[in-house]
């Protein structure tokens, strides 16, 4: 564990909490892509199958349970409790276009052809693109509420910090994981355009609005 990894985990946790609080306090999930949230729940479910087979640390296990619980709580709020506020007309990304390629790739490029490893690899590939329905939704409506922007910024920072963590681990321990690193770079690159808009607009107190 190094400071970048911890920072990444905390940014991820912060993103999840921001989203839950936004939905809970405003009693609305307007502007949030349920499709992306389904993909994140699927990602955590596939990745943390090892929760009961591999014990790494109390920290790891607790974080896994928190991420899983938060992902399903978000789905519950969006699809059950505040279903009426869900903006499904703008959330039209086809999930199979992301799930099927991620599954296919996981079957071909993995560390080991076993259920737990293929599922882990699938979760890595799927997570890399899971935000696309959300970014697609923002581009379709042309704007995002500030709180949604903060959520996206925290979520993007998480994988960016993980990349720094991987560089650090490579030099300090000789550790690297090509699958996680390449997918992590793809994941972070997807946020670049958003990061630019966030820094140039939202941090200056303006609403995130895409140029017409």
């Amino acid at each position: 564990m190094n400071i970048f990894r911890l920072g990444g985990d905390l940014a991820h946790l912060l993103a999840i909490i921001i989203l839950l609080l936004k939905i809970w306090t405003t009693r609305s999930c307007a502007g949030i892509s349920g499709k992306s949230q389904i993909l994140f729940a699927l990602t955590f479910t596939a990745r943390y199958l090892d929760l009961f087979t591999n014990f790494v640390s109390v920290y790891n296990s607790v974080m896994k349970v928190v991420y899983l619980a938060a992902a399903y709580a978000t789905l519950y709020l969006m699809y059950v409790k505040f279903k009426a506020t869900y903006d499904h007309n703008h959330d039209t990304f086809r999930l199979e276009f992301l799930i099927l390629p991620a599954a296919g790739l996981a079957l071909i490029i993995n560390h080991e052809f076993s259920i737990i490893e293929v599922m882990w690899t699938f979760s890595i590939y799927l997570e890399a693109v899971a935000i696309l329905p959300q970014l697609f939704m923002v581009s379709k409506t042309g704007e995002a509420e500030s709180i949604t922007s903060h959520y996206l910024f925290a979520l993007g920072s998480y994988r960016a910090l993980y990349i720094v963590n991987w560089v650090y681990r490579y030099y300090s321990e000789g550790f690297y994981d090509m699958i996680a690193t390449l997918a992590g770079v793809v994941q972070t690159v997807l946020y670049c355009d958003f990061f630019y808009l966030y820094i140039t607009k939202v941090l200056k107190g303006k609403k995130l609005q895409l140029p017409a």
């Binding site: 591999n54 790891n60 974080m63 076993s114 737990i116 994981d177």
Partner: peptide, 10 residues
Amino acid sequence: NNHLLVHDEL
């Protein structure tokens, strides 16, 4: 053993 024990990331 699988790499997930060494990997230990979230």
